[in-house]
Design a protein around this nucleic acid. Structure first.
Lengths: 164, 164
DNA sequence: AAAATAAAGTTCACTTCTGAACCTTTCGTT
DNA sequence: AACGAAAGGTTCAGAAGTGAACTTTATTTT
């Protein structure tokens, strides 16, 4: 019977989905003190801005794989908390550019160290070669998927996409 | 300035999250014909059942990293569509066991071949060694995270957890 | 054995995310 | 230059997921 031959954890679709969700859960389970003061989903927006400040909402949506309405709502929350500001795009009257405030910039070092800490905790028994390979494979998947999903989008929006 | 030193795609938290979301998007973007007739989120439940039929809702929740209320709602949908049935657990009057119907079982081969197809498409230029390493690293992360998040849960619920 | 505590599942109000319609500005034709 | 089409952003109704309260059955304590 087919029953015992299927292993979800041998498929990237399941594996990435579950690992991603567990990471979020794991962050949420942190003690109040250690955890950032905003919902984990918003970290993604800040991360993009740390990488490249002053982007528009559309590109954030593409990068985070969320719709523009979702991005809009998250930005409103982040703006109310004082992490980002929206400014008119001087070159395009339709668009707005998103910039980090000082408060938003300061977050980078905190989050980055937490991320490193967690990675060490989770992957203490993997060699740095293996970790590198895993990130490389995921990044390749990302690029292929990105192109597939945004195929009518000629210019690569993301900084890292331009590197290749 | 710190600005250009941050790359979200060098952190597993962002990478897994975005790849997972892109895979879902990619499936949703398939032509009506090729795509399964139920929401992608439900595939996870079927996958667990293909791996081990007759599990209870709690274990499904742990495996899929969703709350019991979410699982409940998804199961109701799958039951209405005729993919699964709920039965009383003969050994525990509180619990119910979830079983695949024939219709549910047939899905496995379709999904599995789609999954393989997609993996080949996404990772054609990665060696099978690299792919194996990536899955191994993700699986290790999964196990560590699993233990961390469900630490007050003594018995490993998932079949694959028992293998190690 | 009775009482107290815990566990699995259900229900419902609430939050987060999405899809569709809309407004405004820009681009492409002619 | 003027028109139609497309693009970025906003809004709002609806879908998906969550948290807390509740029901029923098991387990633990006394």
């Amino acid at each position: 019977m087919a029953q015992s031959t299927f292993n979800p954890y041998n498929h990237f679709g399941f594996l990435t989905n579950r690992v991603a969700r567990l990471i979020v859960r794991s962050v949420e389970a942190m003690p109040e003190e250690e955890r950032p003061q905003f919902p984990p989903s918003c970290i993604g927006i800040l991360a993009d801005l740390w990488s490249k400040d002053g982007v528009n909402q559309k590109d954030l949506g593409i990068s985070l794989v969320k719709t523009k309405s979702s991005i809009n709502k998250m930005l409103t929350a982040l703006e109310n908390e004082g992490f980002i500001v929206k400014k008119e795009d001087p070159n395009d009257g339709r668009g707005k550019l998103i910039f980090l405030t000082e408060k938003g910039k300061e977050m980078q070092f905190i989050i980055e160290s937490k991320s490193k800490e967690m990675e060490e905790m989770l992957l203490g028994d993997c060699s740095s070669e293996e970790i590198k390979t895993a990130k490389m494979v995921l990044t390749k998947m990302y690029k292929k998927l990105y192109k597939r999903v945004n195929e009518n989008d000629q210019e690569g929006h993301l900084q890292f996409m331009k590197e290749n």
